[in-house]
């Protein structure tokens, strides 16, 4: 289906551009002030790389990013798998069970972080589990799964039950029905769920603070504990944006280069 360049598509393109501008405006601001000469966050006094030097020398900060990434990757992987499997299972449950479980599922989303944090801390204290990197990861998985389920559930509800059933009637095993019929259909939702889970884990402060073991800091713990603003965190954020952008560009370039080598892709409109 080839889209014609109608006034409508100009309008919709323009709208999306505006939304992106809105979303990237503060990011640009953070980037800009990572090059500021002074500590101020409102006055740009001149160009300097001092916050980058500062960042490189700050071991606590560098270790915090390592911790953040490790925790986010593991939490995302586990919560995406568990969440997807659970969502598929739940979609076939009786309505009353599904509703109750989904209501419980909403609790971590709804509760203020401090309540989730103290709740989990109490759980670890009462089971005599020492706080560590493991408890931090467990806690992150716990608050990430609900986001994955919430993202996948609507897509599952759109799915036609009959398709999977028909496949099974035609001799497919439940496993085949799952991997060949259901998963391909909800794949974009799984991806979105994973991305949201990753963001939630990446940006969490309160829950991390109260469930991480001694000496374990993530970026948010660093940022929130700043008594006085340290623009090195802007430098750090700039680094994150640059690295992620590079990854995105690569991920997008590789298939298109490969596609050109084999056959002209028809996905480009």
């Amino acid at each position: 289906m080839k889209e014609r360049k109608s006034p409508w598509s100009f309008f919709s393109g323009g709208y999306l551009l505006l939304v992106l501008l809105f979303i990237y405006l503060p990011i640009a601001y953070v980037l800009l002030f990572s090059f500021n000469d002074s500590k101020s966050l409102t006055n740009f006094t001149g160009f300097s790389l001092r916050w980058y030097e500062n960042m490189v020398q700050d071991r606590t900060m560098l270790e915090s990013i390592q911790c953040t990434v490790v925790v986010a990757v593991i939490a995302t992987a586990v919560s995406t798998v568990v969440g997807t499997v659970a969502a598929i299972g739940l979609s076939k449950a009786r309505r009353i069970i599904r509703n109750i479980v989904l209501e419980i599922n909403n609790l971590p989303v709804m509760n203020p972080d401090i309540v989730t944090a103290i709740g989990l801390m109490l759980l670890f204290i009462s089971t005599r589990i020492q706080l560590s990197l493991a408890t931090l990861i467990l806690s992150h998985i716990t608050f990430c799964i609900p986001y994955v389920i919430l993202t996948i559930m609507p897509k599952l509800r759109q799915l036609d039950d009959n398709v999977a059933e028909a496949a099974m009637d035609l001799g497919a095993t439940p496993w085949q029905a799952l991997t060949r019929v259901i998963l391909p259909q909800i794949y974009p939702a799984i991806l979105s769920g994973a991305l949201i889970a990753f963001s939630m884990s990446f940006d969490d402060f309160v829950i991390s603070f109260f469930t991480a073991g001694v000496g374990i800091n993530n970026i948010s713990m660093y940022v929130y504990s700043m008594k006085r603003y340290n623009p090195s965190v802007n430098a750090l954020s700039t680094l994150i944006v640059v690295v992620v952008t590079l990854i995105l560009v690569l991920v997008n370039l590789i298939p298109s280069i490969r596609g050109r080598n084999t056959k002209e892709g028809d996905t480009e409109g």
Binding site: M121, L131, M221
Partner: peptide
């Protein structure tokens, strides 16, 4: 490691 208030630190010690 870092904290931003005495109370936060105290609560963390309770663990």
């Amino acid at each position: 490691s870092l904290f931003s208030s005495n109370e936060e630190m105290y609560t963390k010690l309770l663990s």
